[in-house]
């Protein structure tokens, strides 16, 4: 029976990035992870290792996490060279240890990008994403009494497409997996979410200009269409979004006389 709790415990070795603070250099450190149940989630495995580290008087491994059900986007680990690990459409918190074999050595690293500086161990600063949203990832509608929700019919395919892109959890796996450390998929997903909806039209050009400018300012790399982002995205967001972003951006550049104002370019 493959039922929970009956599988044999596994003996693993972790190879983890340890870095005390942003200023100090980090290094990979090996830890044994003994008697790990295949039914544990990856983060529960780290919990167990941490409990043992604390008991032994060591500093536990810091990592971001919160909801542990794959929706908040807090967790983000490079596991054996893959963002969020070996399982597709899955965040690290939803990855289970049965994806590994007894005796495996598992390499765990933080997201690596200049725009995501390491804070401690596996914790990185992803505030660049918030700043990209601040640049224009919204519809300017103050709280009040807008028209009735059904006054604006939206074709189902458009609503579905918007939802596909709105599903982004802002975890940063796209940046982490991209050979260029590009934030194109994240930025494009928001531009697509709002850009395909009728509510998003008035600010569509401005949004594309401002968000792309901010993305560049945060020192992310450009997009080479490797497709790695799409492969690791836990929500399966398609690089089609990037095409939409490019189109919106080029169109806005060519047609907006006030482009400078929104891109903030010199």
């Amino acid at each position: 029976m493959s039922g929970a709790g009956t599988a044999q415990p596994m003996q693993l070795t972790l190879n983890v990035w340890r870095q005390k603070s942003p200023a100090e250099p980090g290094r990979m450190v090996k830890y044994p992870a003994k008697d790990i149940s295949p039914d544990m989630s990856f983060l529960e495995m780290l919990d167990v290792v941490n409990e043992r580290l604390i008991q032994a008087g060591d500093d536990p491994i810091a990592f971001d996490h919160d909801c542990r059900e794959g929706i908040c986007g807090s967790c983000g680990l490079m596991i054996n060279g893959a963002a969020h690990g070996p399982m597709k459409l899955t965040t690290a918190c939803q990855l289970h240890m049965r994806s590994f074999k007894d005796g495996d050595e598992i390499t765990i690293e933080p997201w690596r990008a200049k725009a995501f500086p390491v804070i401690k161990d596996l914790v990185v600063d992803r505030s660049a994403f918030d700043r990209i949203i601040q640049a224009g990832g919204f519809i300017s509608v103050p709280t009040g009494t807008p028209q009735d929700a059904n006054a604006l019919p939206i074709p189902k395919p458009d609503a579905d497409l918007a939802m596909d892109n709105a599903a982004c959890i802002g975890c940063g796996a796209c940046v982490a997996a991209c050979p260029n450390a590009s934030a194109s998929l994240f930025t494009a997903a928001k531009i697509s979410h709002l850009g395909v909806l009728p509510q998003g039209q008035p600010e569509r050009s401005r949004r594309a200009l401002a968000m792309v400018a901010r993305m560049d300012l945060e020192e992310f790399g450009g997009c080479s269409l490797f497709g790695e982002c799409m492969a690791v995205c836990p929500k399966g967001i398609s690089i089609d979004a990037i095409q939409r972003m490019n189109r919106d951006y080029a169109f806005a550049m060519a047609t907006k006389s006030d482009a400078k104002e929104w891109t903030g370019a010199a």
Binding site: W17, N80, G81, A82, R112, A177, F226, G227, E228, V232
Partner: peptide
């Protein structure tokens, strides 16, 4: 990265 595997 110490280790990064290409996905697709």
């Amino acid at each position: 990265y110490v280790k990064r595997e290409s996905q697709i």
